[in-house]
Amino acid sequence: MVTKQARSEETRRLLLEAAARLLHQDGYAATSMVGISHAAGVTKGGLYFHFSSKDEICDEVQVTAVAVLREHVNRQLATRWPALLRLADLSRALMRWLDTDPKVGASFRLAREMGSTDERFVLFSRAWLAQVRQYVAEAVAGGELGADASTETVELLVLATCVGLESVVSSRIVVLDTDLAAALAKLWRLVDLDERSPRTMAGGGQA
């Protein structure tokens, strides 16, 4: 017998998944509470029982996206990869999530569209950037980068490449005939960042 709590949790999950899909596909302005309830197959009353506003749903979508990031990083901790390989793998994982995980895609789009007006929309993006900075710092401390390599420059390279690739694809400036993760792996090979990256990690990124 399905308990009341289990039904409530399932309803909340359906609402979050519907909101993530709509936010990723249509953006913040075009996504409405009514649209989310219809997409989830939940009554408007059921929606407002769980979430009082669209911004509250956006917050929760980003929290679940950060959980995806943390899970990936925790898997990386079980490896003995050098920091630069973990950085390359993390960037490829982000590209894959943008293709396959609406929670991450929605969080990235929220930051791009709304981050300049309200910091609540950059929760996931800042968590991802903080992880990039940690790996770059570890690479510097471990002597993986040349003596003349600037920490800020390496961070900017990763950030600009990932954000730029997502932007040109989502805006359909160009249409790639391959997936984002594979496209990024090719770019990294041009700068030798991904040259020795493992092709797979259990449950993790794949170029």
Results as ranks from 00 to 15, higher is better:
186 K>V: 13
31 T>H: 00
37 S>E: 03
139 A>L: 00
3 T>M: 04
64 T>D: 14
165 L>E: 02
126 R>N: 14
93 A>C: 13
5 Q>E: 01
165 L>N: 08
26 D>A: 13
198 P>G: 00
108 F>Y: 14
133 R>M: 11
145 L>H: 01
97 W>F: 01
41 G>E: 07
198 P>D: 00
37 S>C: 07
38 H>W: 10
141 A>D: 01
53 S>A: 12
191 V>M: 07
157 L>Y: 09
14 L>K: 04
127 A>H: 09
115 G>C: 01
170 S>W: 15
149 A>D: 12
20 A>G: 07
10 E>V: 03
139 A>W: 02
140 V>Y: 09
189 R>I: 06
197 S>W: 07
79 T>Q: 03
9 E>D: 12
15 L>Y: 10
85 L>I: 12
22 L>W: 05
141 A>E: 01
21 R>L: 14
116 S>T: 14
115 G>D: 08
147 A>S: 11
78 A>L: 13
171 S>L: 13
122 V>Q: 00
24 H>R: 15
162 C>T: 03
59 D>M: 14
80 R>W: 08
66 V>A: 04
128 W>Q: 09
165 L>V: 15
99 D>P: 01
157 L>G: 01
169 V>G: 11
136 V>C: 00
181 A>T: 10
28 Y>S: 06
184 L>Y: 05
183 A>M: 09
140 V>C: 05
95 M>W: 08
102 P>D: 10
143 G>W: 02
37 S>L: 06
181 A>S: 10
155 E>P: 02
99 D>F: 11
146 G>L: 14
12 R>I: 03
113 E>G: 09
144 E>I: 09
119 E>H: 08
159 L>I: 05
45 G>C: 12
69 L>M: 11
49 F>M: 14
185 A>H: 10
39 A>L: 04
44 K>S: 15
162 C>F: 05
119 E>Q: 04
122 V>M: 06
96 R>M: 09
179 D>W: 01
154 V>S: 05
44 K>W: 12
183 A>Y: 03
139 A>D: 02
164 G>P: 06
139 A>Q: 06
96 R>T: 10
22 L>V: 11
204 G>P: 09
127 A>S: 11
158 V>I: 15
2 V>C: 06
134 Q>P: 04
195 E>V: 05
159 L>C: 09
